[in-house]
Simulated assay, not measured.
Amino acid sequence: MASKIVTSCIRLLLLSVLFVFLFYPDKFHLVLDYPGRPQSDSFYIRLAKSVFWLLLMIEILRIFYYGVVKSKAKGLAANVVTLVVPLIVVLIFLEMIFMYVPQSHEGVLSKASQIWWEKYWKPVNAQNYRDREILNDTTKKAVLVIGDSFAAGHGLENLDERFSNQLEAKLGANNHVVYNLGVSGSDTRDEAARLMRYPVKPDVIVLQYFPNDIEKVAREKGLTLTGAEPYADLTGSWATLVKRFYLPNFVYWQLPHTAFSTFEEFVNKAYTDTTVLNAHFRDLSVMLDYRDSSRAEMYAVFVPFLFQLDKSAAYTKPVEDFLKSRGVTVVRLTDGVAKIADKDRVVGKNDGHAGPAVNTLMAERVFEAMKKKSN
């Protein structure tokens, strides 16, 4: 029995080398290159980690069997091991399970959201947007939807539920084609640049606007947002544990973190600071100049903070007024969102992006505005 325990210990030593390469490659300046990196572990990386955990579990059980069960060991040490080993095995088993559990979050920050991203963020076209490829059909009116994660449909597993896809269905795919240029984390300056680079000249531009679109320019002008960095509340070994392993990471992201009020205060300052606003207007003007040069119609659909409707509308009113003064048709959602049940406004309890009901409202309101303008 002693020899079997020794051989298991040797195998555990060899597994520890594999553990370092799989879970801490950065510590040795190693780069594992695979599709999806560095956004998420690929399926094959997770499969390799699963095999590691399975082998580890087998060796632990083997040592337990020969060291305690078969030897009929007794005493305090044997009792402690008898309690600890099943707990370790259960934790390993749960770690393996949560390596395959997708769950969307605000951003692609949690490991569960990375799994979700790998599974559902499809299709991705040649321009790297979550959209189909560009059609070679100049007979159809081209509608370009530009925006951030709300435009891209973050949290929506079925793209038919996304407002740009619904808008195309309402306009009629026979004479309209709607392209989605949504990118998570994008701000107005980035959106303007991407819009101008897109290889299709628009007949219609639909800007999806969210109150955090001003965030980057506000930071540039000196406003600070504290406590918003992911994992900022973790230090030392806890940070390592949560960042690198799936089970503790999943548990961590089920807990509340930075309060919304912190970001609310930041946004309030940004929209009342004339220096920030004027810089934001300059970024918007770049997009408007492109609209003018392409002779396109332009609509701006304002997505509010989905649980701070009135405050959100007050924050973004200066931007609405600016866009209206430049001939943009502003589409509001606040009254419609207020009629949608709280749980149906978002895609999930851990993800505040717009759910299918809000996307349907967006498509209906933009379609109505386009129909009204064409009459």
Rank of each mutant, 00 (worst) to 15 (best):
N165V: 00
N165Y: 03
N165L: 00
Q166E: 06
Q166C: 09
Q166K: 08
Q166I: 05
Q166L: 12
L167S: 04
L167M: 04
L167W: 03
E168I: 00
E168W: 01
E168M: 04
E168C: 01
A169W: 00
A169E: 04
K170A: 05
L171F: 02
L171I: 03
L171R: 02
L171A: 05
G172C: 03
G172M: 02
G172P: 08
A173P: 05
A173E: 12
A173L: 04
A173Q: 08
N174V: 02
N174C: 00
N174A: 01
N175T: 10
N175E: 12
N175L: 06
N175M: 07
H176W: 05
H176L: 02
V177F: 00
V177P: 02
V177W: 00
V178L: 03
V178E: 04
V178Y: 02
Y179V: 08
Y179S: 13
Y179T: 11
Y179E: 12
N180F: 06
N180E: 11
N180D: 11
N180K: 10
L181A: 14
L181Q: 10
L181H: 11
L181I: 09
G182T: 10
V183E: 01
S184D: 14
S184R: 15
G185T: 14
G185R: 14
G185P: 13
G185D: 13
G185C: 12
G185A: 11
S186L: 08
S186C: 11
D187C: 13
D187L: 09
T188E: 11
R189W: 12
R189C: 04
R189D: 11
R189N: 13
D190N: 11
E191D: 07
E191T: 01
A192T: 12
A193P: 07
A193W: 06
R194H: 12
R194F: 05
R194P: 10
R194T: 08
L195C: 08
L195W: 05
L195I: 08
L195V: 03
M196W: 05
M196F: 06
M196N: 12
M196L: 07
R197I: 00
R197S: 13
Y198R: 08
Y198A: 10
Y198F: 15
P199K: 07
P199V: 08
P199N: 12
P199W: 11
V200W: 13
V200E: 08
V200I: 15
V200C: 15
K201T: 07
K201P: 03
K201S: 11
P202G: 06
P202E: 02
P202N: 11
P202M: 04
D203R: 07
D203L: 07
D203V: 05
V204E: 06
V204Y: 06
V204K: 01
V204C: 03
I205P: 10
V206N: 04
V206F: 05
V206W: 07
V206Y: 03
V206I: 14
L207T: 06
L207Y: 15
L207F: 15
L207P: 07
L207C: 13
Q208T: 15
Q208K: 08
Y209T: 07
Y209R: 13
Y209I: 10
Y209V: 10
